[in-house]
Design a protein around this nucleic acid. Structure first.
Lengths: 154, 154
DNA sequence: CTCCAACCTCGACCTAACTGGAGGTCAAGT
DNA sequence: ACTTGACCTCCAGTTAGGTCGAGGTTGGAG
């Protein structure tokens, strides 16, 4: 049997994940990933980092900040086995956030679908248009568009 | 009947939309929104800007850049009525993009759901884990994680 | 042992998306 | 006429998420 090592160099991780080496060091700096070091101080990654990176990039792609991702991943110890309780807590938080974002996306998409039919984004009179101007009802000192998004995108 | 004006000041738009005045000027600068000017050079917004802002913020929240949003909105003339052809083209593009993102989000969420069950994000042996390490199959000079995301988030 | 590609750190720089401040204008109220 | 507050422009600064390059070290092949 060939004895392929059970770790990866930064170059290998970069190539396999498509994440630049500079970004990998940056992520490490931010605590999103970790690596052992060789005798000569070079990074030695566990294969599991690939999964972690896939997770990070996917999360990022859908609009989550590195900090949000980081604090989620932080609750998943890379060394110790996480307790099921840790897991459930993290998961519950994320599910809510993800559900909200999926919802927002779908509404955005559906809005577009409707509008193709009626051309209302041209911003004249339209049922949808008026439906969204409801916020005017709150009068001065009016509410924010996304009260639920507090702590989301600033 | 009271004669409430058919336009809004920047302060009113800011309050109703929850978007800072500085951001409104910034958006205008980037061509995302427009405004008439009063005799004294102050911005006078059409109510329709509120809908546009809702759209912008929603799109942004789900990870689209201002440039992407801008180029989409750019095809919707605020003054002329857009042709149905314009509309369909724009819509098709966005639908695809949005569908892709919704998909990514759902996969992310479902992954989490599964993992709560098996604890696989602890990064030991797990069906899912291995399923994702398939990229190793491509060998060196391997592909990117998201070949389809070309031109997406950098 | 010698090479050289691949690695290291550190600090400067970059883009996107804003925010804040300085300094000035405008319109309404007293 | 004066004051006040909402507005204007312009420009510098901030945060997130990185990239780049200089200058130095490592490690595997020959």
């Amino acid at each position: 049997m060939s004895k392929l090592p059970d770790w990866l160099t930064i170059g290998q991780v970069s190539e396999r994940s498509g994440v630049a080496q500079t970004a990998l060091r940056f992520y490490e700096d931010r605590g999103l990933i970790t690596a052992e070091r060789s005798a000569g101080n070079q990074r030695r990654y566990n294969r599991s980092v690939l999964r972690r990176l896939a997770f990070i990039r996917t999360a990022q792609r859908v609009g989550l900040s590195l900090e949000e991702i980081s604090s989620a991943l932080a609750t998943l110890p890379e060394r110790r086995t996480p307790t099921k309780a840790d897991w459930s807590r993290l998961s519950r938080n994320w599910q809510a956030e993800l559900d909200a974002r999926i919802d927002a996306l779908q509404r955005l998409r559906d809005k577009l679908t409707y509008c193709v039919g009626c051309g209302c984004l041209s911003l004249r009179v339209c049922g949808l248009h008026n439906a969204e101007d409801r916020m005017a009802d709150y009068g001065p000192g009016a509410p924010r568009l996304w009260p639920a998004a507090e702590g989301g995108i600033p």
